[in-house]
Each structure stands twice: as structure tokens, then as C-alpha cells.
């Protein structure tokens, strides 16, 4: 007999070692995430996948499912916390969706629609984060970084290059590239790297093309992030 736990009252089957997030999505229940990626071990930093398991808040991406657990996810309390976390990510960086090439393909933006982020709620931090246009094929716009470290992990583990890393601490944490000059153009980064295509927001952008797909016809314009994610997980 397969083991199962209850997600918002619905039974969800799981295999030993499977996380709450993986099991839920496989069974057709959506739990949001930004830093989680099927190709890497869980990171657990964005906290969008927060759920209440047996009364305790945990990251669904990093918590192995347990037989008989009652897990709350799609509740006003948890969704309110997710909305708050999204608002935090918005005010922390400089996100101007209307002028962003990633608009419509951006997971942060899509989640903001999904969780009804209608206001920034908090004061904006307006950090000073200059862009890096030194690379011939790729532009880095650090203003939109959400510190999911997907580029860091992809470059290190798939590309074998370690082009990206985080430095600084706390609210001063920021992305740097692997060059003394601090310029992407001085690294061995290539537009064909896995890391060039993994950013869930609009930090790592290809040069020489822009708005090839018109706004209104982009991924999250035609399908919600919920339905897209569930389709990919099934």
C-alpha cells in the first residue's frame, strides 16, 4: 500500500524520501516555489513553498513527506504569508514590470498575479544595483535578482564554471561574477550555458533580441503559473 498524507484534506500518495512539494505537485496539487528546481537539491531560501505540516511551518521543498501528516497549504493564512513574501521580494529589488523584457515570462510576476499582490504594501528599498552590459551576448540586470541562486547552482553543477556567486550579507547580499573586474565580459560565461537560461526573473537576458514574442502572448499570458507548473510536474 502506498503511503499518503493529507494536503488541505485531500489524500496525497508519496514514495519514501519524496518531499511534500514533489508529492503534492505530482498528485495535481499546486504549491508555489521560486528557488526550487527539479535538477537540483532543495535550496529552501525563497520560502514561497511554506506549508503547515502537523501544525508547524516548514518548507515543502525541503521536508520529506510523512505518513498520516496533515498539511495545510491553500489556506488564507498560508497564502497570506506567501503574498507577504512576494511583496518583500518586490520592494527589496527594483522591479518595473512594464519595461522589463521578462514580463510575461517572469515567475515572480506570475506568482504576484496568482497570489493577488495588488500593492507593494511595504516601503521600497530602491537599492543601487548597476547593470552589467560587458558581455557580448548577455546582459545582467541585478535590479531584479531574488537570490534564488539558480544561476549559481547551474553554472557550478551543470556548466562546471562557477561564473556566479553571492557575496555580502543580510539585505546587502548581492550577486557577483567570477572576475576580478566584476564584469561578466571577463568571465568564461557563454550564452549557451545552462546558467544563461535558468533565471526565473529578468536578471540574465540575451542581447540582440527583444520582445520577439509580443506581450500578451508570453508563457504566463496564456497560462497561469499554477497550471503550467502542474502540467510540467505530471
Amino acid at each position: 500500500m502506498t503511503k499518503q498524507f493529507l494536503l488541505d484534506g485531500q489524500p496525497v500518495p508519496f514514495d519514501d524520501g519524496q518531499t511534500i512539494l514533489e508529492a503534492a505537485r505530482k498528485a495535481g496539487h499546486y504549491i508555489p516555489s521560486l528557488c526550487w528546481h527539479k535538477d537540483f537539491p532543495p535550496h529552501g531560501s525563497c520560502k514561497l513553498c511554506v506549508v503547515k505540516a502537523a501544525g508547524r511551518h516548514v518548507s515543502a521543498c525541503a521536508t520529506p513527506a510523512k505518513e498520516g501528516w496533515e498539511v495545510e497549504s491553500n489556506t488564507p493564512e498560508i497564502n497570506g504569508e506567501r503574498r507577504g513574501l512576494l511583496q518583500m521580494l518586490f520592494v527589496e529589488g527594483n522591479h518595473f514590470c512594464p519595461s522589463c523584457e521578462k514580463s510575461g515570462n517572469c515567475e515572480l510576476q506570475a506568482l504576484a498575479y496568482e497570489y493577488e499582490v495588488l500593492t507593494p504594501r511595504f516601503r521600497h528599498f530602491f537599492p543601487d544595483r548597476p547593470v552589467d552590459a560587458s558581455h557580448p551576448d548577455v546582459l545582467l540586470d541585478f535590479n531584479r535578482c531574488i537570490f534564488c541562486e539558480l544561476c549559481v547552482r547551474a553554472s557550478r553543477e551543470i556548466d562546471g564554471k562557477s561564473v556566479f556567486a553571492l557575496t555580502g550579507r543580510g539585505i546587502g547580499k548581492h550577486l557577483v561574477v567570477n572576475a576580478e573586474s566584476g564584469q561578466l565580459g571577463d568571465t568564461d560565461f557563454s550564452a549557451t550555458d545552462a546558467a544563461a537560461h535558468i533565471c526565473p526573473v529578468g536578471v540574465i537576458l540575451p542581447k540582440g533580441t527583444g520582445f520577439a514574442v509580443p506581450i500578451g502572448e508570453r508563457s504566463f499570458d496564456v497560462a497561469t503559473i499554477r497550471s503550467k507548473t502542474l502540467k510540467e510536474s505530471s
Binding site: 531560501s45 525563497c46 527589496e92 516601503r123 528599498f125 543580510g170 539585505i171 547580499k173
Partner: peptide
């Protein structure tokens, strides 16, 4: 340390 969203942004807020 700035690792997770709630602490990184929340403590500053």
C-alpha cells in the same frame, strides 16, 4: 545572513 526571504527582508522592514 540574508539566505531566506523572510529574515533578509523582514528584519530590515
Amino acid at each position: 545572513c540574508g539566505f531566506c526571504t523572510p529574515c533578509r527582508v523582514g528584519t530590515s522592514l
